[in-house]
Computed example of a mutant assay.
Amino acid sequence: MLRIAVQAKGRLYEETMELLSEADIKISAMKRSLLVQSPNFPVEILFLRDDDIPQSVATGVADLGIVGENEYMEKREDAVVVKRLGFSKCRLSLAMPKDIEYTGIGWFEGKKIATSYPVILSNYMKEHGVNAEIHEITGSVEIAPGIGLADAIFDIVSSGSTLVSNRLKEVEVIMKSEALLIANKNLNAEKKEILDELLFRIDAVKTAEDKKYVLMNAPKSALDSIIALLPGMKSPTVMPLAQEDWCSVHTVLDEKCFWEIIGKLKALGAQGILVLPIEKMIV
């Protein structure tokens, strides 16, 4: 059985639980439950603080962990990245009071910067030859300039609304972050086999994201032109209809190009276009 360390609450927790659910791994996350076993897949979920996950995986307390890249880079624990999961995206940025002119990274020379990520920030400042005073704090980092604790902050930014509400502006993006699946370096053969099955399920879920299954009736006279428009997985499925001059065409479209292609299909005579969501896709 694999033990997976997962953030106990917050956005990363919610998106992790959604991913596991879509992979048909049932988890009953009861309140105050630290360790929960899945009834239908050989995994158990260990709920931890996000900053404890890298160490728990590196030391073997957990076999796998789903953690933000920001925490993985900050803790520098000896665990390996198995897969980038593509959700819980954010960035780590330097921000300062909005009414002060920013003149470049040299502005931070001699300044006090409040952050929960002193390792990442210290390395960045060394790379740029800037000698700043770094104050490590937890909690609401964004209020530090307003109460006179620091001149600037280095913190997670998603939408930027928190910065705006604290009269701060983002001036340097230091790194971008997303959820990572990390693993202990010493998994045995049995656990690696379970991990392979887990990755297979995750890949099926992630591949289906932003994809639509499209069915349409198409005139045979325009079939070659219609097929040329369709960027399907390999090639579209074409089946005859009762009406001799028409056929049914089935394909998969990426949502980002969906409306552009649908308009062109209609112009070529396609009718009865049906669009369906895709839950899983095996390639």
Rank of each mutant, 00 (worst) to 15 (best):
G232F: 04
M1S: 09
L230C: 03
V252R: 08
G106E: 15
I227L: 11
D50L: 02
M96T: 02
N186A: 07
K206P: 08
A152K: 08
S161R: 09
I25C: 01
F47E: 03
D210A: 13
V81E: 03
F154K: 06
F108N: 06
K169G: 00
H135Q: 15
T115K: 12
I120M: 13
F200M: 02
Y102I: 00
G60W: 00
V283N: 06
A144C: 12
G129C: 11
R201V: 02
P54S: 10
L274M: 12
L64Y: 06
A62S: 08
G139S: 13
W246G: 05
L223A: 10
K220T: 04
N186E: 13
D63G: 05
P231T: 08
S158C: 00
D210S: 12
V249I: 08
S165K: 15
A29Y: 04
L198G: 09
P240F: 10
V164Y: 13
V67Q: 01
S159D: 14
I45P: 00
N70R: 07
D203E: 15
D151H: 13
E178K: 03
I27M: 05
S56I: 00
V252A: 08
L149S: 07
E172W: 02
A179W: 07
K111A: 14
A179C: 07
N131T: 09
F87N: 05
E22M: 06
L223S: 11
T16F: 10
V249D: 09
S140V: 05
S235K: 09
E172D: 12
K83E: 12
K126D: 15
P231L: 12
K191E: 12
M239R: 15
I53C: 03
E133S: 15
Y213F: 14
K256A: 15
G263N: 11
D50I: 01
L149V: 07
F258D: 03
A189D: 12
V141L: 05
L215I: 06
T16E: 09
L265N: 04
G86T: 04
I120Y: 13
L163E: 03
V283F: 09
V283W: 05
V36D: 02
S159L: 09
N217P: 00
A208D: 11
A267Y: 09
I66E: 07
K176M: 06
K220R: 15
F108E: 06
A5Y: 01
D52Q: 04
M96A: 04
G272E: 09
M96G: 00
Y213G: 08
W259E: 15
R167P: 01
P277S: 11
D245Y: 03
I278E: 12
I134N: 13
L181Y: 10
P240L: 07
F41C: 02
L149C: 01
I147F: 12
D210I: 01
I147D: 14
G160C: 11
G160P: 10
H250R: 13
R49G: 05
T103N: 15
A114N: 11
K212G: 08
I262S: 09
D78K: 00
L268M: 02
N40P: 04
V283I: 03
K89L: 01
I202G: 07
K75D: 04
P231K: 09
E15K: 14
S140F: 10
E209H: 10
S140E: 15
E178T: 05
I120N: 14
V43W: 00
S235N: 07
L85F: 03
